[in-house]
Design a protein around this nucleic acid. Structure first.
Lengths: 346, 346
DNA sequence: CTGAAAGCGCTTACAG
DNA sequence: CTGAAAGCGCTTACAG
């Protein structure tokens, strides 16, 4: 293994290439970057020398000189759901295409960690930043925004738009389709069992608008933060039982992706059958989830496109035109599967 | 938005801190890093100046000077499965703890992209590299290894161990338990429906050893690469039908995580009931998958621990002691769920 | 077209 | 204990 076994990797430098080619570093640099004209023969010599030595430019040095990093930061609340993966893929591909490197970190919903990670990214001098963060952490971004580094918040709530531009998926149309379909199936009362985050998202007003247009009533319940624990499952079961005992109980329930499986299990434990006793609609889906072939009806966004749009926003910003406070990207679609059926007879 | 709206972020430099504190950059540096002694009052002045200006050290410059990057690269074949996420989390946390930044990229199983990404990471002067790559791409690492940068391959095949140290999960014990349980349930022939990668993995010999100890026969079939397409599902269905028509058909099937859902759907289409007609065991599971509450029996590894172990390997390597060619980490466990039952009567 | 020099922001021997 | 200087690896005006 030789030198490598020490874990000390001394890499070839431009200086070495230059001297092997018998030219100055300036010329070597110009020959390799192609910035200015270089005589053909010398260019060839340099090229050869570089290849022979296996030269790889040190981007850190290069970027330091050019005072930019060609690096983008992305902070996620967690990787807990495959949903974010699709977004991450989109972001990753787009940034690669444009020569940027994406630096991804997860904060595990810990507010302090968010601060730390963002500081870390700033120290790495990211050219811009993407954030997926809980609504109450909007002002976590304050110090970051103050540095003048472009930062875009994704999947956020409108309340965060004051701090930094927001990129959100427009699900209104898909929600309307879902509501209309439920109305056709004789549903009258629907429940949105949302996470604390969901409670302030644009899903609530969208559901209400759609419902009133279709003659439905929307109820809102905040589910406990899902950690996947059985305690959560029981809490949700209790909550659902309470809701379903009311005079005019909901006959359909909307849930966020991250609570979906808990809800399913809670329902199974009660036991309430889907869709005979209760129809179910899940917000969010990824290719991977789809591949499981679960019968969940969903309102699904093209996360890859969201990633690409986010990238475009940032590129434009870096090019001089900052994005509006809120950018809506309208690609959510309503996908009906077996979890939705006619409202049960009274 | 002021300056920020231009996307031009000029950040505070040590030079500015120094002059505000009325000292030299050397002293400012020493005060902040705490490397050498600095008089208490001056230290305080510097600290104050830094805080007042919102100074954040430029890690790129710092690392350039120290000729290291404090950056680790990780190349994944894809993010397609949540399985890798757990590993990624483990790696991410561990590297964070040790002050390293993790640079993650996905190659979408494209050999050329692998090369590109690795070059990219080398240009970023990563201190070390993790790779999850298809077995046929083992020598993709050659040029990388030649640079002397420590690189560890994870979830790889023994054939790759020639190129770079390998970190693999030891599933032998768990496989033995599964086999033994199946034998108790009167199964005699089991099928391993593996991906092309799986065909050369340590799972095959482990299964064979376990089977012969328990008096079982193992058959091996290579499933088409799963892209989630319906064509794949039909291929798998055809393959399964063929297998099950043999004289002594398998009564239990082992599948890799990435083909599990396809197989499930293929079985449903045939239709073959699980576990009445066929028992099913899936290699691999993540918290997220578990949360779905699917009745799959699995052989599950602690991916978080794999990530941490990977990190330790690299740290030791960087500290001077390269890892052995193969490191086995033995945390896989056998988890029995509803997909396993008695062998059907003949 | 080419080279010597300055500088990106930091750290660390080297003198005081 | 403190400062002036060199240097990490690169790029780019500035002279030739």
């Amino acid at each position: 293994m030789g030198e490598g076994s020490k874990g000390v990797a001394r890499m070839v430098t431009l200086q070495e290439v230059a001297s092997r080619a018998g030219v100055s570093v300036s010329t070597a640099s110009r020959a390799l970057t192609g910035a200015r004209k270089v005589s053909v023969e010398i260019a060839e010599q340099v090229r050869l020398a570089a290849e022979g030595l296996g030269y790889r430019p040190n981007q850190a040095a290069r970027n330091l000189r050019l005072s930019r990093s060609m690096t983008l930061g992305a902070v996620f609340s967690s990787f807990s759901s495959p949903i974010y993966l699709d977004f991450l893929e989109g972001l990753g591909r787009a940034s690669q295409e444009h020569g940027y490197t994406l630096l991804t970190m997860t904060a595990h919903r810990d507010p302090n960690l968010y601060q730390t990670l963002i500081q870390h990214l700033l120290e790495r001098r990211v050219d811009a930043l993407f954030c997926v963060l809980p609504p109450e952490l909007g002002n976590t971004l304050k110090p970051c925004v103050a540095t003048g580094v472009p930062v875009v918040t994704v999947f956020g709530q409108a309340t965060n738009a004051e701090c930094a531009p927001l990129l959100i998926v427009d699900e209104d149309e898909a929600i309307l389709q879902a509501a209309s379909r439920l109305a056709d199936l004789d549903h009258r009362t629907i429940l949105y069992l949302c996470t604390p985050e969901g409670a302030v998202s644009s899903r609530v007003p969208a559901l209400q608008t759609a419902a009133s247009r279709c003659g439905l009533v929307v109820e809102l319940e905040v589910a406990p933060r899902s950690e996947g624990a059985t305690a959560d499952q029981e809490q949700i079961a209790a909550l659902l039982r309470r809701c379903l005992c009311r005079p005019r109980p909901p006959t359909a329930v909307f849930v966020d992706q991250c609570t979906a499986s808990l809800v399913i299990r809670a329902l199974a434990s009660l036991p309430i059958r889907v869709p005979e006793d209760l129809s179910l609609v899940v917000f969010g889906e990824s290719d991977w989830i789809q591949g499981l072939g679960l019968p969940w009806s969903t309102i699904r966004a093209d996360l890859l496109e969201v990633g690409q749009t986010g990238m475009r926003l940032i590129l434009d910003w870096l090019a001089g035109s900052p994005p509006p406070a809120i950018t809506r990207i309208g690609t959510a679609t309503w996908i009906e599967r077996g979890s939705v059926g006619p409202a049960p007879a009274r």
